[in-house]
Amino acid sequence: MAHRLRREIRLYLILRGAALRAATQYRGNVLTTMLAGAAYQGSGFAFVWVLLHTFGTVAGWSLGQIAFLYGMRLLSHALWLVTMDGVGLSDVAIREGQLDRMLLRPANPLVQLATNTRSLMPFGDLSMAILVFGIALTVADVDWSPAAVLFLVLAVIGGAQVEASVVVVIAGLSVRILDTWAFRLMMLDAFDTLGSYPLSIFGSGVQRTLTYVLPVAFVAFLPASVVLGRTGQLAVPAWLGYLTPVVGATLFTLAYLFWKRQLRGYQGVGH
């Protein structure tokens, strides 16, 4: 078991490396693509920054605190994007028959799908994440005990798993229905749009929906509230904020099982 896992991780790294080398073949596009990834995420932060420049706080959150929240969510987002970008392109891979080839190889199909990308945009997301989070660390007032740091690391990984589980479920769906593009666009956009802002700007109904139905709040808002000591405004129990690592691991496992189940029903393309 451990041996098999080690092998899959080694293969993952080899394949990811190959995908990166392939992406850098188009030199002219390397820089612009990374800039585009950064601009995509950065324009959202620029919006908050300009807003706070005028108003000072939004729903009681200062610039440093929002930067912390924004940076945390971007780190989670970049983490799943950098590692599993290819899963987000599952419908293309299936339509073009690449999944057939993945099923013919002695390696986990999800590992192969995850590395099946030619985009460098995730690294733009990642650099913006590091930048925003770096700014936050210099401005925000955070308790830096070892326990808090450990929680932060686990929460970022958990947040990445929450987002990744949504993408894996959609990949599972695209095994059955070939065109999931619009579906994925809407789901990912919901995370992109809502994940990085203090959800206390909404009423308690929306907050609960974004906690229990579409778990956007677990990605950054709830754990950041805990770390920043801002749990007073939450419409849901504050201890939920500590659960992000568990929620992430659970959702990702369920998503993986769903994907595996869907693969059994794979009908191939063009028979």
Binding site: G28, N29, T33, A36, G37, A39, Y40, F47, L51, H53
Partner: peptide, 28 residues
């Protein structure tokens, strides 16, 4: 010239939208 232009297209989309005032009125 570049064949692949996803990067610059996405860049345009977000930079232009922001500087056009799509999320913040320019007076702010």
């Amino acid at each position: 010239w570049t064949v692949e232009n996803t990067g610059i297209a996405v860049l345009y989309r977000f930079v232009a939208a922001f500087l056009a005032g799509a999320s913040v009125p320019l007076v702010f």
